[in-house]
């Protein structure tokens, strides 16, 4: 019996030494491929997007050998647990509910919430006082509605819309003075469309955890602390060496990391 245990330990040591000696750790990156501009498949069938670029940068920084696997959103956590891939890097928000099933790296971005208003309104200096008596449009049942009602409910009139597009339309029609939503959703869904002409972002990036949670992280199977630490170190590294900023600038004209 003793011999058996000893030989098992010896075998484990050999295996451990073997993987340490190998040049690169092999990591399969799981993503969705249907959430532009974060992850999507371009017309040539190639996986593209902010998540993908960040993922590749992390692989390089951590000295991983990476391959990409795509998986539909509904099955993306079961696929990780079933070891079809080792990470999920797909703009997944870190939530308490998901934390019961998987572990997360530190966040690699938090899209802030921002106000959009007409170019004319944007000329005045933005402050909380400037919103006094104004009308703010927001999508109903969202973290953004909670944020606006808690912070501006007493000084401004809040209009809650069923759909974000309706709030954008009323901004255009002049029924609301400001709209607050996810900055990326506003940028891609409104400002960069013909309808968004003459409208601009104003005010700060809002990322307060109380309303907006912990941001998007890389999900891994529970208990894989070594991988988690390597990912966190890689995120810190690309943040520090300018790689992150370069990728950020490719997709967005504001800082998506948050604070």
């Amino acid at each position: 019996m003793k011999k058996l245990i000893l030989s098992a330990i010896a075998a484990m040591m050999v295996l451990g030494a073997g993987s340490a000696m190998a040049e690169k750790m092999k990591v399969r990156m799981g993503t969705e491929g249907a959430y532009p501009p974060f992850n999507f498949i371009d017309k040539n069938g190639k996986l593209q997007g902010f998540d993908i670029d960040i993922g590749n940068a992390i692989c390089k920084a951590a000295n991983f050998e990476c391959t990409w696997v795509t998986q539909d959103w509904d099955g993306i956590i079961p696929g990780l647990i079933a070891e079809k891939y080792d990470t999920i890097i797909a703009s997944m928000s870190i939530t308490d509910e998901r934390k019961k099933k998987v572990d997360f790296s530190n966040k690699y971005y938090t899209t802030p919430a921002r106000f959009v208003t007409s170019a004319k309104n944007a000329k005045m200096k933005f402050s909380k006082d400037a919103l006094k008596g104004k009308t703010i449009g927001v999508q109903s049942s969202t973290i953004h509605e909670n944020f606006v009602r808690d912070n501006f409910g007493k000084i401004a009139k809040i209009k809650s819309y069923d759909k974000q597009e309706q709030a954008n339309l009323d901004l255009k029609a002049g029924r609301v003075d400001f709209v607050l939503a996810d900055a990326v959703a506003l940028d891609d869904g409104f400002l960069k469309t013909p309808a968004g002409k003459g409208f601009v972002f104003v005010g700060p990036n809002y990322t307060d955890k109380k309303w907006f949670g912990d941001g998007a992280g890389i999900a891994i199977r529970k208990g894989e602390d070594k991988l988690r630490k390597a990912l966190n170190a890689a995120i810190d590294k690309i943040r520090a060496d300018g790689t992150y900023a370069r990728i950020n600038a490719k997709y967005f004209d504001f800082d998506v990391y948050g604070d």
């Binding site: 449009g137 109903s140 049942s141 509605e145 909670n146 009602r149 209009k159 809650s160 819309y161 069923d162 009323d170």
Partner: peptide
Amino acid sequence: LLTVTELFRSAKIIAVR
């Protein structure tokens, strides 16, 4: 649905939070 905060909307604001 036209953003009027009547009885149903005021309940919904609290319910979803």
